[in-house]
Structures are given as C-alpha cells and as structure tokens.
Amino acid sequence: MAAIDSRGDDVVLQLEDNERSLMLTVFTDLAALLGESDESERPASENWEARLGLVDRPRPEDPALLRLFPDVDPYDAERSKEFRRLTEFDLQQAKAHNVRIILNGLSHGPRIPLTEDEVLAWTKGLNDLRLVLAVRLGIDTEEAQEEKYARRDELDESEDLTLTLYDFLTWVQDRLTMTLLDGMQGDEEE
C-alpha cells in the first residue's frame, strides 16, 4: 500500500511496484493527451507564433481536454476564442511540465522524495489526471458520482478498475495536499 511520509520539509512518497507501474502508464497517457497537438513536432516558427498568441487554437472537441482547457467565459464564445489564442499554449506547457516532473519521479524507484515545488506539481498533475478520468467515467456532477458508486456492482471490469484507480489517485492527491496545507500552517506560526 502506498504511503506518504512527511517530516519537517521532506515529503517521501512510497509506492508499491504495481502502483508505480500503473501510475507510469496513466501519466504517460496524460502526457500524450496533453501533447495531442504536439508542440515539439511543429516547426519552430509555429511554436513561436503560438507562444506569442498569434495562432488561433481550436476549442477542444474531446470533453476531457475541454475540462483541462476551459473557456474563459462559457457565455462569451468570442472572448473565449481570443483568450485561448493568447493563453492556451502557456497553460498546455504548464500542465505538460507537471506531468514530466511526475514521470521523472516515478522512474526513480519505489521511494520518491519530493521538494515542496515537486509536491505542488504532483498535486496539480494528479488533479488533471483525475479530471480526465472523471470525464471518461461520466462523473460530471456530484449526483453522477454518487450514482456511479451506488451502482458499482454493475460496472464492467474496466470501468471498475478505472474507478479504483481514481480513488487511489484521490487518496494520494489529498494526502499530498495536506502536507502543503501543513507547510502553510507552519509559515503562519513562524
């Protein structure tokens, strides 16, 4: 069973081999999803144009991607389009960066020491992955979530596994967030 040990400034995440290999798989998938319009495969000039907000970026059709890259205002399509052009490249880079930090940590072994910045990257990346899994599971409201758990016996094997994974990621994210909150408490007391 995974464990999170935090003493003083150090946070150590310990994962069983099966947990670690599963997380490697799903975070690699998330990296691929984020890289769907892979920036590195584009000519450098286009990359610069995107960075400078000169290139229109299409509103994602995949609901999971739309959840990661929401409209700036669901009631204003024109402003949302402009905002996407100006900011989505940076947002995509930030999200991909968090996933890279996670994949790097997972590749080091069962005992993963994390700095505070890395804990933050992990919590953000875990949150993004959970957003994607929730969309895939059809959990878009609290009612849908309750229904999903209430009818768990009826889920097919792959959906049941996804839900188990989702719960596991929720637990890790919550525990890591607690260490960040504890750190803030410490700052206030100093």
């Binding site: 919590t123 949150n127 959970r130 957003l131 929730a134 959990i139 878009d140 409201t141 609290e142 849908a144 979530q145 929720t170 994210q173 919550d174 967030t177 607690m178 909150l181």
Partner: peptide, 8 residues
C-alpha cells in the same frame, strides 16, 4: 465540480 477535493 465533483473532482476537486475540498482540501485542494
């Protein structure tokens, strides 16, 4: 949304 944790 149902995903974001209260702690987070």
């Amino acid at each position: 949304d149902p995903v974001n944790l209260m702690s987070y």
